[in-house]
């Protein structure tokens, strides 16, 4: 294990028991090292265990097999040290709190003093371009704006690892592309390790340093594709032959599924 490794997954497996007592294997023998500051995607069809894997890293699930370490600690220790920022598919905003107060919520949990809370929340809102909406309620925002509030909230606690579970899959194509660029810009500025779950091939290729392809029945890691496209990336990249070739390469690793 090299010292730049942030998350180390060693032979991870997850088996559920169904109600009638049968064992269902959601994930089997996943071994993967995620580097510090890396943008990595977990890509696959539904049922491939990509969300399960993310939830194992986040300490929302405990694997039934294998070892996982996050910066030399268990996921539980990492969670208790508030090293994770999580973004879900839906923005999961608190509709009784204003946008600013939504971003302040995790800081309240951490007992950050009030002035600093406001300060940090406003900085995060500026980062995601929502300064003008700080006093709005989530119900007044569009889906894309809500998701950006979710990202600001996840970043507010200054996590080292950003875990994103299909964060853009409920958005329309235009909003999604805009948020891709926003996310890359934020990632470049903040240098987080990002684990990004998606079922969209070109999204994974566009954003990531590496794409982990997972296959279903049982969920397993079937390929890891290096995306050696130059950064910073812009939307023009998507029409280059290099990009198309990488998308084709990732797609081909699904064959035989």
């Amino acid at each position: 294990m090299d010292e730049r490794t942030e998350i180390m997954l060693d032979n991870i497996g997850m088996t559920y028991k169904t109600n009638d007592g049968r064992d269902v294997t959601a994930l089997t023998s996943v071994t993967l090292d995620i580097r510090k500051g890396e943008f990595i995607s977990l890509l696959g069809p539904s049922g491939c265990g990509k969300t399960t894997l993310l939830r194992i890293i986040a300490d929302l699930l405990t694997p039934t097999q294998g070892n996982i370490s996050v910066g030399g600690e268990t996921p539980r220790q990492a969670r208790l040290k508030q090293r994770y920022g999580i973004v879900f598919q839906s923005a999961v905003l608190y509709d009784w709190r204003t946008v600013r107060k939504n971003v302040m919520l995790p800081l309240e949990i951490m007992h950050v003093p009030k002035e600093e809370r406001i300060d940090r929340a406003d900085k995060m809102l500026e980062l995601v371009g929502l300064s003008d909406f700080a006093n709005h309620f989530p119900g007044q925002l569009s889906g894309g704006m809500q998701q950006r509030v979710g990202i600001a909230r996840a970043l507010a606690i200054r996590p080292e690892i950003l875990l994103m579970d299909e964060p853009f899959s409920a958005l329309d194509e235009f909003t999604r592309e805009k948020l891709h660029d926003d996310l890359l810009r934020i990632w470049r500025k903040t240098n987080k390790t990002v684990v990004f779950v998606t079922h969209n091939i070109s999204e994974a290729v566009y954003l990531s340093d590496r794409v982990c392809v997972l296959s279903p029945h049982p969920g397993r890691l079937s390929a890891v594709v290096d995306i050696d496209l130059p950064r910073p990336r812009t939307a023009q990249l998507k029409s280059t032959p290099e990009f198309t070739a990488l998308v084709a390469k990732v797609r081909s690793s699904f064959e035989g599924v």
Partner: peptide, 22 residues
């Protein structure tokens, strides 16, 4: 929503905070 509770869990919130904030 399940996700709201999971968020609170990921912030390592206490049970008291889970109730008062969420």
């Amino acid at each position: 929503e399940q996700e709201k509770c999971e968020l609170m869990y990921s912030y390592a919130s206490s049970r008291f905070q889970l109730y008062t904030k969420t």
